[in-house]
Simulated assay, not measured.
Amino acid sequence: MKKNGLFKFGLLLLILISITSCVSKKDMIYFQNDEVISNELHKNYAPKIQTDDILNITVSAREPEAAVVYNLYKGGGQSSSTDPITYLVDNEGNITFPELGKIKVSGLTTNQLKNDLIKRLEVFITNPIVTIRLENFRVSILGEVKSPGPYNLENEKVSIPEALAMAGDLTIQGKRKNILLLRTNGDKVESIRLDLTDKALFKSPYFYLAQNDIVYVEPNRAKVNSSAIGTTSSLISIASALLSLVLILTR
């Protein structure tokens, strides 16, 4: 009778361990509702220029010699044989541009800055062409993803799902309903929680990443428990060994 009770206790313990290691289907599947999301919500999205950003700005025109003075190079001259200089946005949100002097750029998109520069340059150049690129568009992806780390992005319009895909997607132990996004906004850091299992994510103003964003994927309860005590298989092995020992000692 005593052995039978111990056997039942051990069996119940094994069942409980197996149950706690299971993950609900609803916790794993992305974008679960069938709501139709309008593409207009993010059609014109573009990241804003921030302090400490590095800008690559090139000016050209039909008459190349007219634009030469606005394109400086690291070698100190105006020859294409060396790399063009880049422009660091200072703490006040300004850059100093050749011939035009100090220009306020923080808070603008690259397209808005391009249009502003074209208007300024039209006084000196006929039909100027301006191209601008953010050189330091980088995000960091941490936590329960297959390849965590910093990612330098060529595209300035990258969504949360795209960034996570670049990091190899979430591991089975990652919380899909509670993604943490950390975003620097001036002298403040915003903390935003996002749910990958809900299609409403596409409506979020944080669907697209900004430069220097940090995305953190928390571990689920099973991962936290296994890190404290060991893996689930180890728990089962330990429980089995303890049960065998108790049965031997009570014979």
Rank of each mutant, 00 (worst) to 15 (best):
K2Y: 09
L6M: 15
F7Q: 14
K8R: 03
G10T: 07
G10D: 13
L12R: 07
L13D: 00
L14K: 05
L14E: 13
I17L: 14
I17N: 04
S18F: 11
S18A: 15
I19M: 13
C22Q: 10
I29N: 00
I29K: 04
Y30F: 08
N33G: 12
L41H: 02
L41V: 07
N44Y: 10
K48R: 13
Q50E: 07
D52L: 01
N56D: 03
A61S: 15
A66I: 09
A67Y: 06
Q78K: 13
Q78A: 08
S79H: 13
S79P: 15
D90Y: 04
N94K: 15
P98Q: 10
P98H: 11
E99T: 12
G101W: 06
L113M: 08
N115W: 13
L117D: 01
K119E: 14
R120P: 01
F124H: 15
N127R: 12
P128E: 00
P128R: 06
I129W: 03
V130H: 03
T131Q: 02
V139T: 04
V145K: 04
V145Y: 00
K146W: 04
K146D: 09
S147L: 14
P148E: 11
G149E: 14
N152T: 15
L153D: 04
L153V: 06
L153W: 07
N155K: 07
K157D: 14
P161M: 01
A163C: 08
A163N: 10
A163Q: 07
A167H: 04
T171K: 04
K177F: 01
K177V: 01
N178A: 09
I179D: 03
L180H: 05
L182Q: 11
K188D: 07
R193W: 12
L194W: 02
A200C: 00
K203V: 12
S204V: 10
Y206L: 00
F207P: 03
F207K: 01
Y208T: 06
D213F: 10
P219Y: 11
R221D: 07
R221G: 06
A222C: 01
I229E: 10
G230Q: 09
S233C: 05
L235V: 11
L235S: 15
L245F: 13
L247M: 13
L247I: 14
I248Q: 10
